[in-house]
Computed example of a mutant assay.
Amino acid sequence: MNKLSGKTALITGGSSGIGLASAKLFLAEGARLAITGRDPERLETARQQLGDDTLALVSEAGCLNDIEALLEQVGQHFQTLDILFLNAGIAEPTPLELTTEDQFDRIMRVNFKGVFFTIQKALPMLKPGASIIVTTSITNRSGTPNFSVYAASKAALRSMVQSLGLTLIGQGIRVNAINPGPIDTEGFNRLPLPGDVFQAIKTDIEGRSPIKRFGAPEEVAKVALFLASDDSAYVVGEEIVVDGGISLVCLP
């Protein structure tokens, strides 16, 4: 339907999962595209799936030098941006007694600090009418044992989206968030947990979910398309939950 015809998009964390599914959908809808990833091999595999016209750049989401270099390359290639989808993030267990300062700083640097400064440094490239989309998580509204630092980083993003939504709307730039629940992504399946523990967690989530399954990345991508397109022109500072209803029964 070409909802993004003539628009240019940058998706961080675009080499797998929600980011890659969104990249494929954005391309199908007519966007010009740049994606980032940390792993060169995974990024190259994604680029091959997306085609030679996609700009694929290795970049560490929490490193300010990488962010500046990324945006310089995107600027040289595309000049301006219409869509900035900040999807890169990391999730690690952080039991209170075992969490180190380095681990705390790494999670907050990638999940929160990197997002804030990517928006800041991308501002000169963002055209009036541009859309900024941030991936949060349903953990940002609930107690999440053993993942407290990850949940806090996503709660910080939720607050930031509200504040920057007000800050930037005067420039014609919309800021919104997608709040995914349990999604069957490579990132989730790579959580550093023993196999039996991981399977027990997955089975428990499926059992508690009203829809009785994990979501697919493609289902989240359709919400990203809505926020990226002019269909959401009157949506500002919002967080759209995509979780199969699990937050209705598992959150306060």
Rank of each mutant, 00 (worst) to 15 (best):
P182Q: 11
I240K: 06
D231H: 07
A46H: 13
T144A: 12
E92P: 00
I132L: 09
R141L: 07
R213V: 08
G51M: 14
A31N: 02
T167V: 08
Y150L: 02
H77M: 07
L81D: 01
N179P: 02
L84V: 11
E72R: 14
A152V: 04
F117M: 05
D184H: 04
A177E: 05
E72S: 14
I173A: 08
P194T: 02
V236H: 04
D231P: 01
F198G: 00
M108R: 04
L168A: 09
I169D: 04
G195M: 12
S5C: 03
F214W: 13
F117K: 12
N189V: 08
S16Y: 12
V58T: 13
R109T: 08
A228W: 01
N65M: 05
S15Q: 12
L86D: 08
E97I: 15
L64G: 01
E238L: 08
P124V: 10
G6H: 12
I173P: 00
L96T: 15
D196A: 03
V249D: 03
I133L: 13
F85T: 01
V134L: 09
F112M: 13
E97H: 07
D230A: 12
L168I: 09
T139W: 05
I107W: 09
L20H: 05
E29V: 03
S247Y: 14
Q199K: 15
I183H: 03
F85A: 13
E218V: 04
F112T: 14
G19K: 04
G215P: 07
E97V: 11
V115A: 11
T45G: 00
S131E: 06
S163E: 03
R190M: 10
G114M: 09
I90Q: 02
L50H: 06
I178S: 02
I35M: 01
A224M: 07
A200Q: 10
N111G: 00
T167N: 13
R32P: 00
R213W: 14
A61M: 06
T139I: 02
L84G: 01
L64W: 09
R190D: 12
T54F: 05
Y150W: 09
G245F: 10
L70M: 11
L193C: 12
L193H: 07
L57P: 00
P93N: 10
L71W: 14
L50F: 05
R38V: 06
L126M: 10
P145F: 06
S153D: 03
F78W: 12
P210S: 06
Q120M: 10
S247K: 02
S232Y: 07
T135G: 00
A130W: 05
P180H: 09
L98H: 14
A177S: 14
V134K: 03
A9Q: 03
R213Y: 14
D39N: 15
A130L: 02
I90F: 06
